[in-house]
Structures are given as structure tokens and as C-alpha cells.
Computed example of a mutant assay.
Amino acid sequence: MCGRYSLNKSKIELEERFQAEMLGDFKPRFNIAPTQLLPVLTTDSPKGFSFFYWGITPDFAKNKPVSQKLINARSETITQKVSFKSSFEKRRCLIPANGFFEWKRIGKKTKTPYRFTLSDEGLFAFAGIWEEYENDKGETNHTFLILTTEPNKNVGEVHDRMPVILRKEDEKKWLDNYSTEEQLIAMLRPFPAEEMSSYPVSPLVNSVSNDTAAVLRKTSPMDQFGNYTLFG
């Protein structure tokens, strides 16, 4: 499961990388978590950033709050799930990021956080789907989730799933309404391990309130209590 990611880049860097306009300001984010309002590019608006909530509500669940648990979808079954099939066909999105976090379980009660980036630590995009729904106040909200796949060798040493990171050349195709199901499914594969880097980070990342550069710093492996571990 991908439950945290980072986007510590400026508005200008985002606009240049994705060739899209962002209205308003954007501050770099170091510790992004579910339910937060975040920038995405959609099939409906590929040239302008929209801000959606992370945590999708399926179209059959009316008047429900943004979900904290439903934040990912398995890419292997995306066309089979009634709750996601329509979104996959009509409402896909790019989710900009420059890193994500996973936790390596060391023992029954011990977990160590790691950060994963591209080798050049540049921007990339997760493959996502989005949904529109009406809340109990009659307001229209937009939400998204991240598609996941089997891990590559790098991520697999820490976790049994990883987010789908799209190749840069596939990003426009992912948002193209004319892409076929076969073309889209072919993009949902593990990103090459040799093009990624990883390192242990501080357990500061465990708290959503810690949205500072400190959570990105490389450390010796530590568990959630701040104790150094023997195994990294």
C-alpha cells in the first residue's frame, strides 16, 4: 500500500515538468497523507492542475465522506472491480510526486520507514483514477486514489506492493481518452529497480503533522519509537 508520498517541488517546477498551468500558489510538501487536497492532472483537464482529495469514494457510495482507508487500488483487478471500472475507463489522472514512503516490518511490533525516489530524485507521476460525488451538504467533491502493482526488487525488500509509476512517455497516453484498455493495462507495471533509489528515514514521517524537510533526511534505520534497529 502507498500511504504517504512527497512533492517537495515548486509551482514553477511542476508546471515545467508537466507542461500544465497551476492557478494559485503551491508550497512544497514533504509528508503527504490521505484526505488532503492535492494537485493532479486529469483526462478532463490535462493542461491544468486540479486539486482533489486523496481517498476515493466509489460511485455507488453516495453522500459518504472522503475515505481514509480507500486510497489505493490494485492494478491487476482494476477492470474487474465494479467500483473502479468506470473510473479506469473514463476518469484517469496523473498524481505528481518526487518520492514515496513504505515501512519495512522488522518484528511483530517494529517497522522502519524508507523513502523511494527516482535515481535523479526528479519529478514523476503515479497512475491514478478519480471520482466525483456529492457530500451531505450538497457540495461536489473530487477524490483520487493511486494504483499499485507488484514491487520491483528495490521496493520488494521493504514492502509487497508499490505504486504504479508511469514512464514519462506514457503520461499523455494515460490521460488520452482514445487509449485502448490494452494500451492502458500495459502501463501498469513495476518501475525498473535500477532506475530508483531508496534509503531509511526518520520515524518523524509517521506523524502527518511533520510536513518538513526533516522527514526526507537519510538516517540509520530506526523503528517507530526512535530506536535504532540492527536490520535495515
Rank of each mutant, 00 (worst) to 15 (best):
D136I: 06
Q183H: 08
E195V: 00
A127E: 00
L118Q: 07
T79N: 06
R161Q: 05
T148M: 05
D25N: 14
S179I: 10
T219A: 02
D176T: 08
A213I: 12
W103R: 04
K47P: 02
N135V: 00
K27V: 13
E195Y: 05
E15M: 14
N227L: 13
Y228V: 03
P96G: 08
K81N: 11
Q19N: 15
S202F: 02
S179W: 12
K9F: 12
E21K: 15
K69C: 05
N206T: 03
P39I: 04
V215R: 00
L230H: 13
L23K: 14
Q68R: 09
M1D: 05
N177H: 13
E169G: 00
Q80M: 10
V208R: 14
F126M: 06
F60T: 03
K109C: 03
E132F: 10
K104P: 04
A61F: 10
F51A: 05
C2I: 04
L14C: 10
L23P: 01
F126I: 08
G138T: 02
G3N: 11
E171C: 09
F30L: 06
T35N: 06
D211C: 05
E15R: 09
A127H: 04
P200W: 05
D160H: 14
F231G: 02
K137V: 00
K27R: 14
E21S: 14
K109I: 08
I146V: 15
I146E: 00
Y53N: 11
R17P: 05
G138S: 05
K137L: 14
S67E: 08
K11F: 06
E15P: 07
E139M: 10
P192E: 09
V208I: 15
D211E: 09
P151A: 10
R92W: 07
E195G: 01
R115D: 01
L70E: 03
K90L: 14
L37K: 15
S83C: 11
T79M: 07
T79R: 07
L14G: 09
P39G: 05
E134D: 10
A61L: 14
F124C: 02
T180D: 11
T212A: 07
E121K: 12
L23Q: 12
E139T: 01
S87H: 10
E21I: 15
R29A: 13
E182I: 13
E131G: 03
T43N: 11
A33H: 06
I12R: 15
I12Q: 14
S86K: 13
I185Y: 08
L7N: 02
F84V: 03
S198R: 12
S119C: 01
H142L: 07
A193T: 08
R189F: 09
D25T: 13
P203L: 06
